[in-house]
């Protein structure tokens, strides 16, 4: 772990790198976990409007505990605030924004993503596990661009970027770009391609930790 910690991107840096690729004025939906950190790294001079699928555009940061409103939550059921210009709406309108292609970017965490853009982030499919899907399948089918932020490998060192997902799919062929601790990777018609390497990381190391063929930058 010590050797790994000295190179590559940490959680904040992965989120900051993803934020660089989101255009000014975008409507953005952030998944739970590292994707939530994207909101902390909006590049200077840009403004994003955050959508939360339980029914709000213009979601702001968490409130101080004494200022929280018990009726104001995000999709992760955490207390949030509303920025100036926010709007509330019911669930059918909220998912019309998603399914109808009105949200520009969704940043998600994942368990696996495949070289053809398939994503598996809702269930391990293990017997006895309680299946829970929430809005994940709506988001990956409806949002214009699906970005994934994830560690390049699992805690046990297995690749998360794979040839074919072994877990049940959330959606087929939907991911366009992946931000890991080691690299920025595009999903192209020819499979994975490294766009940018994290500081101190070599292409050979990325190739070794990827479970599918991956093309070098350029």
């Amino acid at each position: 772990m010590n050797a790994a910690a000295s190179t590559g991107w940490n959680r904040e840096q992965m989120a900051a790198r993803a934020a660089q690729d989101i255009p000014d004025g975008s409507y953005v939906n952030l998944g739970i976990g590292i994707p939530e950190l994207v909101a902390k790294f909006v590049p200077e001079g840009r403004e994003f409007i955050y959508h939360t699928e339980n029914g709000m555009l213009g979601m702001g940061p968490p409130p101080a505990e004494e200022e929280r409103d018990l009726d104001l939550m995000n999709a992760g059921k955490k207390y949030v605030t509303a920025v100036a210009g926010a709007a509330y709406f019911h669930h059918a309108d909220s998912f019309s924004m998603i399914r109808g292609g009105h949200i520009d970017v969704c940043v998600l965490g994942t368990m696996q993503v495949a070289a053809n853009g398939d994503i598996a982030n809702w269930s391990t499919g293990a017997p006895g596990a309680i299946p829970a899907v929430g809005g994940a399948m709506d988001l990956v089918q409806g949002v214009k661009k699906i970005y994934v932020i994830t560690q390049h490998t699992t805690k046990t060192g297995d690749p998360k970027l794979v040839e074919h997902c072994s877990y049940p799919l959330t959606g087929p062929g939907v991911v366009s770009r992946i931000y890991t601790d080691l690299a920025v990777v595009d999903v192209t018609p020819a499979g994975f391609r490294v766009v940018e390497l994290a500081p101190g990381i070599t292409f050979a190391e990325v190739e070794e930790k990827t479970g599918a063929q991956i093309l070098p930058p350029g």
């Binding site: 699928e53 019911h90 669930h91 059918a92 909220s94 998912f95 998603i98 399914r99 309680i130 299946p131 829970a132 899907v133 929430g134 809005g135 994940a136 399948m137 709506d138 409806g142």
Partner: peptide, 13 residues
């Protein structure tokens, strides 16, 4: 349990 994606649940209703 009948598991329904969130947006599909809203739209079915």
């Amino acid at each position: 349990l009948e598991l329904v994606p969130q947006g599909t649940l809203a739209e079915r209703i």
